[in-house]
Design a protein around this nucleic acid. Sequence first.
DNA 1: GAGTGGTCTAGACCACCAC
DNA 2: TGGTGGTCTAGACCACTCA
Lengths: 268, 268
Amino acid sequence: MPPPTNTRVANSTEASPGAGSGSSSAAAPVGPSFSPLYRQIKALIIASLQAGEWRAGEGIPSEVELAARFGVSQGTVRKAIDELAAENLVVRRQGKGTFVATHAEQQQQYRFLRLTPDEGQEPGLGRQLLDCRRQRAPAWIAHQLNMRTGDAMVEVRRLLHSKGKPVVLDDIWLPGRLFGGLTAERLSQHRGPFYGLFETEFGVHMIRAQERIRAVAADAESAALLQVEVGAPLLGVERLSFTYGDVPVELRRGLYNTSTHFYRNDLN
Amino acid sequence: MPPPTNTRVANSTEASPGAGSGSSSAAAPVGPSFSPLYRQIKALIIASLQAGEWRAGEGIPSEVELAARFGVSQGTVRKAIDELAAENLVVRRQGKGTFVATHAEQQQQYRFLRLTPDEGQEPGLGRQLLDCRRQRAPAWIAHQLNMRTGDAMVEVRRLLHSKGKPVVLDDIWLPGRLFGGLTAERLSQHRGPFYGLFETEFGVHMIRAQERIRAVAADAESAALLQVEVGAPLLGVERLSFTYGDVPVELRRGLYNTSTHFYRNDLN
DNA sequence: GAGTGGTCTAGACCACCAC
DNA sequence: TGGTGGTCTAGACCACTCA
């Protein structure tokens, strides 16, 4: 059976990777930057994700449907989606379909927060908004967020409490161009983690993040807010979060009081 | 085509999972603990790995060979190996074969060490062995290493230096039964990371680990060793490492001076 | 019962490597 | 040139979900 006549994916160097059945595609040497069909399909799906073709919580087309759309076999689409699922961009549910990963509805945890109490289960951290203002980005922030110094930026400061005691002091910086109507009221009214709000209100999905962790001594201000002594050791966590396409969209600086909690990490 | 007559994998509940081609396997309801064929294959391969059937650096049988041995299709073996590769138990190399993952020869980094210098590349950390002795395990260590209090245990203390300055102070505890001939001489003579020695000399592979991180203040002893002031903030990293079958085989307590380095973590 | 993802198979061809 | 992993296809059946 010859390959169907349709919109087939073209490789950057006009290569037609090892296709099975048909007698199509004779030679075509492989260029320097070759990527297999399923990766191209994956990139197309990501593009649709990014473009918001399918909204947050609910499903993307079925595998057969996507296979037909892209003119490939279901197996190829499957492998593409496998990778997307492995990267948490998408969630598969047998018998139901494949869904755009969301961190809005699920009241689980704070997406990237790796803090665990020494004893018992975390009953959910309380949030306390301290500040939210629009600023001009200083150089060191602008640089990390792919902005220019002086660009518009939203600055948020908040506390997280566990059993009434402050545990985390967060400073958050966001590009102004992406978070237009973000105000203190908007933030304080919202229930659930910020990342949920970012998805539903601003269409910004946090895909991955990288953190830099140090031990620091509490200064006067943070000591007061976290109710510890000046000079007490705190975990300083600097987090840079990315959306689709490895675009940085959030910078955080957190100070964690690790006297009753610890930062957990699994290494493979 | 009926399935080949051979040593076929049997599921725990006598279930014959969705096989394709043949007209074999009529009903067979699925039991409570069902696992697909490729996972059973994976388990068999892990068993061989654990048994040391194939030694560290070099290859395991080819996919076709394994498929024949287990009486399944190459695709099923492939999927099993895919997972093993994803878990870093095994490394695939196109055109060459699949190899048991090793952390001995590769003089890369320290397997699980997530420490990065603020500037430049790490030129390799210098090691300084401070102590190595056999002890009886106290309760809190025995508990984490699946031992009984008072069991034999090897205790190691060492420093890691960067550019001549101490950065990491590690205390390491190992079950005595697994590390029989481990002595200070053996450790100091060895080149490269401990985990390499553990593999080649004792056949112990570290597969994964979990860390608990806190900010702590330097006490007198660690301050002296790390050349910082008493009370200086340090990163306290407690690491429990596991071999095949989630068996804990090493406990570490590290103190990191994060004034010129940071702990990096990637979140997905 | 229809639809969706999950598993398994068989066979084709490609890219890489070593001899 | 032959072997190994890598990609792609086509088709079968299974398990799960929901109307």
